[in-house]
Amino acid sequence: MLQASPRVALFVTCLVDLHRPTVGFAAIRLLEQAGCQVEVPRAQTCCGQPAYNSGDRDTARDLALGILEAFGGYDYIVVPSGSCGGMLRHHLPTLFEDDPNLRARAEALAARTYELVSFLTDVMGLERVAGAASGTVTYHDSCSGLRELGIKAQPRRLLEALGVTVKEMADPDVCCGFGGTFCVKYPEISTRMVSDKSADIAATGAETVLAGDLGCLLNIAGRLKREGSAVKVRHVAEVLAGMTGAVPPIGEAG
């Protein structure tokens, strides 16, 4: 049964903390508008994906222990990223296969963890968010959000309810080539993948490209700007929270 005012812990994520704090504030605004009490546990750092996906399970496990400590006791943990959200929801418990107690704690935490837009729609049941917006956007489905968390229609629905026109690119579900450490380990392949993505984005004629993951967005913005494209790049939460005035698009000066 959904509580009237659930206590929600925001998992900020490294990239939002370091690169684009506005996304974190947009998440807080959206959650509060949805009636949640939002807290930001201070002891958080990283979900551990860089270690986990590099085969370094010990470091990933240490960080996971820190997450279990910092995020216990909340009704929900909400993450403005499908990638970090997928890490907490699907992979964290696998780090404690040898310890039934920790595994149970990790599973309990995983079950309470949601990506931001999925939480607003699937858990809080929102059909629309406050405010209005206009213009044409295209939406890139980040891989983890799409395939690990089933996020596809939710952001589009909220955007359209705001008054935004969503114009689909070809293959919105194909990876942009970011892939965490992949983009620096195999830069030529990554660059080629993001070039294909930027071409698909440009072909829509949309003014703005949105996604729910900063990793993809930095990659896509980096390529579009290198190509001299005028397409704006933003995290979906900035648009949904009506905070596009607070910060210039990714990769652009104010």
Binding site: P21, C183, P187, S190, V194, A221, K225, R226, V233, G251
Partner: peptide
């Protein structure tokens, strides 16, 4: 609002710019 070159980040900046952070952390 972006960097075209950065020491030790040649893998990234060879094919794309690096969007600059807002400046302050969250």
């Amino acid at each position: 609002g972006r960097l075209s070159r950065l020491p030790f980040a040649g893998g990234w900046t060879a094919g794309r710019d690096l969007p600059a952070p807002e400046g302050d952390t969250f």
